[in-house]
Write a protein that binds this DNA or RNA. Sequence first.
RNA 1: GGAGAGAUGGCCGAGUGGUCGAAGGCGCAUGAUUGGAAUUCAUGUAUACGGUAACCCCGUAUCGAGGGUUCGAAUCCCUCUCUCUCCGCCA
Length: 425
Amino acid sequence: MLDSKLLRNDPEAVAANLARRGFAFDAAAHAALEESRKTLQVRVEELRNERNVASKGIGRAKAAGEDIQPLLDAVESLGAALKTTDDELAVVRARLDDVEAGLPNLLHASVPDGKDEADNVEIRAWGEPATPAFEVRDHVDLGVALGQLDFDAAAKLTGARFSVMRGGLARLHRALIQFMLDLHTEQHGYSEVYVPYIVNSDSLRGTGQLPKFGADLFALNGEHEYYLIPTAEVPVTNLVRDEIIDADQLPLKYVAHTPCFRSEAGSHGKDTRGMMRQHQFEKVELVHIVRPETSYAALEELTGHAETVLQRLGLPYRIVALCAGDVGAGAAKTYDLEVWIPSQNRYREISSCSNCEAFQARRMAARWRNPDTGKPELVHTLNGSGVAAGRALIAVIENYQQADGSIRVPDVLQPYMNGLDVIAA
RNA sequence: GGAGAGAUGGCCGAGUGGUCGAAGGCGCAUGAUUGGAAUUCAUGUAUACGGUAACCCCGUAUCGAGGGUUCGAAUCCCUCUCUCUCCGCCA
């Protein structure tokens, strides 16, 4: 949600900023709605005031033992007038809310122009993609040949876009998660949280998945309106919903490992092979809750924490700043980490680190008490994958493959594999 | 799953139809006392929106959420959510 004051006072600036995303915000139409909201609201408040004054008078007269009938007659028509105007106001409000709830966040000035993925700007790269003497195979070939990746079984159990892992690969996957959690908690100062994988619609509204992106979610069929989480960002960030945080508690840095469930309704036909794009995958998520003035420093820090994961794993990657057209709706600025995938001969997204500024905080009423003003003020929220475990597994399998189809275990993961250094059939 | 009790401000906690945004306490802030601190005393201390240039003032809303009754609802009625206690079940 955007600042309603800004929306009212400078709708043209909002429209100009959102236009960078390719989002058309009709400032004039909004202003007209806003104007009628204001008129109606003033009228309703006047009527209410009239009624309140009259009611107090009735109370006083009754206490004094006077005849209140004339007073009752005097306010007789007020109720109907109030109801009519109030109903009109509710209609206008609802339309306004619809518009405003669907607006994406304003972009930070440093976000590069561009309309899609192709226009993202590389910030830096780390590591050298290997150039093996043998023909590289993709993770599907390798995993299936090892007998440890099984998409047929997953299709039987559920359907398309799920996977079954066995033995060494299953353990490698778990080792990745353990390694990442330990790294972030022991060396990067995060506190680990365990959270529900099922959330209510308020939480999804808080982080911005609803009302606009419900199609990407798996909704549960039970008596409650519950959804499977598409990312740990939802439950973890919503920890601070409706909270006022003491200044000395900030920054809050949370790390959580959760599965993520995405229906990916819009991407059929993309990455249909293998584990790249699944309905269910594991992720280690980093969330920062910070003072507004520190949020851009926090974005660099958080991104660095995700990078460290890939460096320790010895996986070549690059960092790109998402361009205006590619930044997600809730974010003001986003860096993606892209890891080298040998079989595709290119980098693929493995982490996305975003500063949402006050966009989510405003929806969630997540505030901190600013000691300088003594007032509750909105916090800034950030989130980033640190990193996606499923894609990290793909990257390890493909980057650590050997000519015989076995997979070397990265050094940092061997302690989590009982010392195992090669996964073979 | 069965039975019962609850949900009030940053926190605790009064308030069962009429100047209640809400007593009292805690916490916090400022001032006084003190060499400094503790103690004590005084004063102040919600949020959002609107009228406004204005964080002065005025108005409106907010006592778990939504609806209803009424001239008037924290207080009465209905629905829902959550919490607690006891029983049952269970990893």
